[in-house]
Computed example of a mutant assay.
Amino acid sequence: MSGDALIVPEGEHGRIRVFALDMRPEQAEFLREPGAADQVLGLAGLDPAQIDVIRIADLEGLGLTGYLTEGCGLTEEQILPDRALLEGLEGYVLVLRSRAFQGAAAVLAPDPEVRLIASYDEPDTDWRAEPVRSASAEPYSAPRSAPRAARARARRIGGGLFAVVMILIALLIWAVAV
């Protein structure tokens, strides 16, 4: 896939792209600098917080597949078809999240040293839940105080704050005088 243009549609979200970096370690390390990854991906204005440049040897015990499942939240089923390829990679990889494009459409034209290995969709959050059934969850279930009681409470709070401020001013004047 190296050299091919990759089209990112407007509003894309929840997609993770994994690129192998076929370059010297110094060059790969430099891609961690803001704007450097933009150059090798052929697109300016990417969010550097959404780009990870990873030395695979640093993932000892976890591995790249573990990083993608444990760190990025991908499922084992998504990784399974590419597992052998991902585990066979050496050197550095670049992990690019859709949030790097900030919702804009884009065309990536990666350098020949940057090969797209795989793309994955992050699993959506399941927002379903059982409805809360209790008296306290009902609208307007909190006890209501009478307007006169609420005003009296507000006066007490205001009076207390006024007293504290006046004491602080008195202490300040006393400290300056002494």
Rank of each mutant, 00 (worst) to 15 (best):
G61N: 02
G91T: 01
I157H: 12
R156G: 05
V93K: 05
L41M: 04
R153T: 06
A44V: 03
S134E: 14
G73D: 03
A154N: 09
E10T: 07
A129Y: 10
L116I: 11
I16F: 02
R151I: 11
L85S: 08
D121M: 10
P9W: 08
D47K: 14
V114Y: 12
L31S: 08
L41Y: 01
A152R: 10
G73R: 01
E29N: 09
H13E: 14
V165H: 09
A142L: 11
L41F: 04
E10Q: 11
R99Q: 11
V8T: 10
G66Y: 04
G35S: 02
R97V: 00
R83Y: 10
A5R: 13
A175G: 11
G73P: 00
V40T: 08
P48W: 05
G88I: 02
I51G: 00
L21H: 07
G63V: 00
G159D: 15
V164W: 10
V176N: 11
L168S: 15
A20Y: 05
F162S: 13
A36K: 14
L86R: 05
I7L: 09
R133S: 13
E76I: 01
E90F: 04
P131K: 05
L94S: 02
V164D: 06
D82Q: 13
R55Y: 01
P131T: 03
A154F: 06
G3S: 03
G42N: 03
R153I: 03
G159W: 15
L172H: 12
L171K: 15
